[in-house]
Nucleic acid binder design. Structure first.
Lengths: 238, 238
DNA sequence: GTTTTGTCGGCTGTCGACAATCTTCTTGAC
DNA sequence: GTCAAGAAGATTGTCGACAGCCGACAAAAC
């Protein structure tokens, strides 16, 4: 073992250097561009153009795009290239229904087997309120909210739940960002997480499952309604 | 639409030429090699070697491998390349728990909203029994079994359920194939699907959910027990 | 004998180029 | 004026090449 970084006696105070390759950096850059709205849904993502702008060859760009494809942010059509995924109301509704199924199971497992996850969840709640105080940007709110739900999946102990959650989280964010603003009062939005935490703290798995199903269900209705309205608006404009 | 293959009047008896690109063909070839056991778990998949053997460049091979990575068949380590995924008992248990969650929700939706899916499920049952009569190969049984469950996800109406199912189906197959043989009597194995169909036919969503959860739960216990035994055996041999 | 250092073969990461394919624009016929 | 066919331009699909990185073994130092 020449490379055991967890060795008890660390000879030198060096942190491991970030080994992120080009592909990861390109992927990050693209995710940011899409989630920030700089690139709009439906828009074409020409690998040659991206490569030229980033001043590198097409190979890493192509791989990064394939990566984004598997997270649902980007769509690939054979011989046509990549396009930013266009979200439909149906697709988002189905996404939220999947989330209900996954997170319900996750919170149940967490409540029954891992109450030690509570402090982390409470801390994330505090972060949500802090952001509300600061009147932070939409993106920050969305990320913090998603992180709360991610902690639940992580705390379930089943890595598959987390894997599915991570796979759809970017798409969820995209859906939220497309509609702009959800709650007028960010504090009230944060508070809707309370019943979940209370049920976990009480050790009541059924109540926790019901609470999170309700919580996500409300979000589902809000988001799909928004998107349906937007789609109708767009259809009318055409 | 210059390419409507479903045209009513077919002028010539030509089958549509497979428009699958190189990448898809390479991916298929690799999946077969892995699921047939020709390449063992843990083995290295050197893109250069594969490319040489298939007589093409590394680019399509690399893309195919990235594709397999997202379906969990293959693992990627930076600067080291691709390796066939090694399945652990824990990982398989978590996989089956995810399947229970997804398919329970799917069968519930199917029962409540899409009883029209029943004939297809019954046909697939018949196929299972036919294979049992013919004493077919393990791989054929496994595929037919998975197809039954896929039909349930498909019939749920939620494309996300199907998406998740497809993503993990290859890994599930790999797990089943690694252990060799499961049931001594293939007919009995086929029959364990009966209660699910009966519940759907009766329109009882709760019963259908319970039936499929039980069905998958049994498989989970069998498979994890097998794999645990195998792992212990291997550990002892070292 | 054990640990560190140097070397080597093989593989991945990235590149630029060419061929195949699609899209768009133009042209021409009706 | 509309539609179809063809040409031009741009983009993807695939390729072969080269530099950098990795793991393994050999050599050297202690």
């Amino acid at each position: 073992m020449t490379r055991d970084t967890s060795a008890v006696t660390e000879a030198y105070p060096f942190l491991p250097l970030s080994r992120d390759g080009l592909v990861d950096r390109v992927a990050h850059s693209l995710v940011n561009a899409i989630l920030s709205g700089a690139i709009r849904p439906g828009e074409r993502l020409a690998e040659s153009q991206i490569a030229r702008q980033m001043d590198l060859s097409r190979a890493p760009v192509r791989e990064a795009l394939r990566l984004l494809e598997s997270s649902g942010l980007v769509e690939y059509r054979a011989n046509r290239g990549f396009f930013v995924h266009v979200i439909s109301a149906t697709s988002i509704r189905e996404l939220y229904e999947l989330r209900i199924v996954i997170e319900t199971a996750a919170v149940r497992a967490l409540t029954e087997t891992n109450p030690g996850a509570l402090p982390g969840l409470r801390a994330q709640m505090a972060e949500l309120h802090r952001l509300a105080d600061e009147d932070a940007e939409m993106m920050a709110h969305v990320s913090a909210d998603m992180q709360f739900h991610r902690l639940i999946c992580e705390g379930s102990g089943n890595r598959r739940f987390l894997q599915v959650f991570d796979q759809i989280s970017n798409e969820t964010k995209l859906g939220l960002l497309v509609i702009g603003r959800l709650y007028d009062d960010a504090h009230r939005m944060a508070e809707t997480h309370e019943p979940i935490i209370a049920a976990i703290a009480a050790g009541d798995a059924d109540a926790a499952a019901a609470a999170i199903a309700y919580h996500i269900g409300v979000a589902k209705d809000l988001v799909t309604a928004h998107i349906e309205a937007q789609q109708q608006q767009e259809a009318g404009r055409t």
